[in-house]
Simulated assay, not measured.
Amino acid sequence: MLPSSLSRLKHSQSGNFFLFAGPCVIEGESMALAIAEKIVNLSDKYAIPYVFKGSYRKANRSRIDSFRGIGDEKALKILQKVGSTFDIPVVTDIHTEEEAFLAAEYVDVLQIPAFLCRQTELLEAAAKTQRWINIKKGQFLSPQAMQFAAQKVVDSGNDQVMLTERGTTFGYQDLVVDYRGIPLMQQFGYPVILDVTHSLQQPNQTAGVTGGLPQLIETMARAGIAVGVDGIFLETHPEPAKALSDGANMLPLDQLDHLLSRLSTICQIIKSF
């Protein structure tokens, strides 16, 4: 049975936005539990339904020497422990059909990376696990095209679908968010999430390490809430400069309280209209 906070996602317009948040990648158990505890306390403070996010393995890296994980089984068991310790749902990303069935044993939501959102066999395998499926919009796709990715999951016997906006390629080293895409994707009948940290990435840097604009995280998130997005996705870390993956666009954990306070206030104002 899915946690109650997940069963409410389809009806998120009646309350606060929901939050997917956590580190880019699982670096260790103590780190994951500490981040989760902090965010759980904040989500309770602001009445925000919360899903812990963490990659158990990173597959899409610019360089072969980039950090990719501490080991699949070890990281998945940490994700499972986070969920059971705090009684919260957990999401992780998958890259192959085999990974779908492996990860589904440990987490509640399977996430399809943006570069893989058109992979039919991956979407079919994810659907068959009967977990919630969060599909990130490809940087190369229009919002309207995401209806076909979602339909693949539905046609495979699973209507528990979410769609995530994470920016559109703008030149070689930048992304932009077209906020018109949020209501356009909501028309398909699925919760829509705004990934405010990956939308601020600056990929394809000459050093082979992705850059970012984390100082604009609040700006990006506030705009998304104002437009009426159902959920916010963000990556956070106690010390982003020391993070083993994607530190350049993560939110420092000690800034999350301020951000959630602002977003909750904006959300309540918007819903009062």
Rank of each mutant, 00 (worst) to 15 (best):
S62M: 04
I39Q: 05
L110T: 11
V153M: 07
I112R: 01
F140G: 00
I88P: 02
P191M: 11
S14I: 04
Q144H: 11
R262H: 13
K152L: 07
M220K: 07
L76H: 11
G171I: 05
I193K: 00
D155H: 13
D72Q: 12
F86H: 02
A223H: 08
E73V: 14
V25Y: 02
A21W: 07
S84G: 08
I270G: 01
F17W: 08
G54R: 04
T169D: 01
G22F: 11
L216E: 15
D108Y: 02
F20E: 01
A32H: 01
E97V: 09
A221W: 00
Q187E: 15
L259N: 03
L200Q: 12
S62E: 11
Q80G: 15
K58H: 01
A243N: 06
P3Q: 10
T96I: 04
Y190N: 05
D93G: 05
L141E: 03
Y179A: 03
K10I: 06
L213H: 13
R262M: 06
A100E: 05
R57D: 15
D93Q: 10
Q201P: 10
I193N: 03
K136P: 03
T129V: 08
L251I: 14
L141Q: 04
P143W: 10
G208T: 06
Y172W: 06
F17D: 06
I112C: 05
F115T: 04
G71S: 10
P252C: 11
D159P: 02
I193W: 14
L260G: 07
L116I: 02
E239G: 01
H258I: 10
A223M: 01
F101D: 00
L194G: 05
L42Y: 14
P240I: 11
H258L: 04
P238R: 08
C117R: 06
